[in-house]
């Protein structure tokens, strides 16, 4: 700055000198400023410009630092709010989801946690679910029409598990049918049966009984269980395992190969589980049931004899008893009644 002031002083001095010269020699025309003068003035202007630019740059930098110091506003908030799905209330979202079919709901479920919870909350009712073990595919039906068919042949394992889990999570069923012997099911079901969410079905039908059905039953809610036992599976071990599962209400066991002994195992196990009043146990035999022998096994707990084919048995709970009706077509129906 001091240099500039000196220069200005010098210029002023030069101007004074020029005026003096003109006074002494008035005939001399006013010429253009000397080159030195021009250079000096230009330099002065340049210096001023540079100074100004410097100040401006400093100001700009200071402003930028100030902005950086300030809190960063998220990009989303900077955007002008546009009406979209997120503007809708949960009630309205559910209203919209109601119009989506199962496939679309499964896809929407994958978008975000909030949407997943909404889809799970709004249960999708399916009439029937068929799980084919030997063919490794699953088929869901609504109003008699197949709405979702999944084959496990080529899809990655994680995807299989996720799809199966999602279906059980969002669907309620009238019937859940394990159509093929569960032992033959793909290993995915073996893993799935351990981590299976609650099955919301009115009836679970299983052609056979295995560890998979046993595990799935444990995860299940209250429904009627139907087991169609194959010849080889109707061993005493299988039947004991079958009755050791949680039977609170209704059970139907079909195609039992055997007679009095098998029937005794099933009824004894059922009585031990202390089913509530109104519960049913229905057993259908392939073979012949000797009615006298059959009732003879329960002689110790007889409470009332209604007829040749109808008797009442005592239960551990004195307020309840079991009415057993045997038909000639090899079926036994047990009902829990009030004493």
């Amino acid at each position: 700055m001091s240099e500039n002031i000196d220069l200005l002083k010098l210029l002023a001095r030069i101007d004074d000198l020029r005026l003096e010269i003109r006074e002494i020699f008035p005939e001399i025309e006013d010429s253009k400023p000397s080159n030195l003068m021009e250079i000096l003035i230009e330099e002065q202007i340049k210096n001023e410009k540079v100074e100004k630019e410097k100040d401006e740059i400093i100001q700009k930098l200071q402003n930028e630092i100030q902005l950086l110091k300030m809190e960063k506003i998220p990009e989303k908030l900077e955007k002008i709010p546009e009406k979209n799905w997120n503007c809708l209330s949960e009630k309205l979202k559910l209203r919209c989801i109601k119009f989506l079919d199962l496939k679309d709901r499964l896809r929407l479920r994958q978008t975000a946690h909030k949407e997943r919870n909404l889809v799970d909350f709004l249960q999708f009712h399916v009439d029937e679910m068929l799980i084919f073990g030997s063919q490794n595919f699953l088929n869901l039906f609504k109003n008699g029409e197949s709405i979702l068919k999944i084959s496990w042949a080529n899809s990655p394992r994680n995807s299989q598990f996720f799809t199966l889990f999602s279906i059980f999570k969002i669907c309620t069923f009238d019937n859940c049918i394990l159509y093929q012997p569960p032992n033959e099911l793909d290993s995915i079901f073996l893993e799935f049966s351990e981590k299976c969410p609650p099955i919301r079905t009115r009836e679970l039908f299983s052609r056979g009984f295995s560890n998979i059905t046993y595990r799935m039953l444990k995860k299940s809610l209250d429904f009627t269980r139907i087991f169609e036992c194959k010849l080889l599976e109707t061993s005493h071990d299988i039947l004991e395992k079958l009755v050791s599962t949680r039977y609170e209400n209704h059970l139907r066991v079909l195609n039992v190969n055997g007679g009095n002994a098998e029937c005794y195992i099933l009824i004894k196990g059922w009585i031990t589980s202390n089913p509530p009043i109104g519960s049913h146990l229905f057993i259908q035999f392939n073979g012949y049931v000797n009615v006298d022998k059959f009732f003879g096994k329960f002689k110790k707990i007889w409470s009332r004899v209604h007829g040749e084919l109808e008797q009442e048995l005592r239960m551990p709970d004195p307020s309840k008893s079991i009415l057993i009706q045997v038909s000639r077509s090899s079926t036994i129906k047990c009902t829990v009644v009030e004493t």
């Binding site: 309205l92 209203r95 919209c96 989506l100 929407l108």
Partner: peptide, 8 residues
């Protein structure tokens, strides 16, 4: 709502 659902 149906129209919204149809979008996806």
């Amino acid at each position: 709502c149906k129209q919204v659902a149809m979008m996806v």
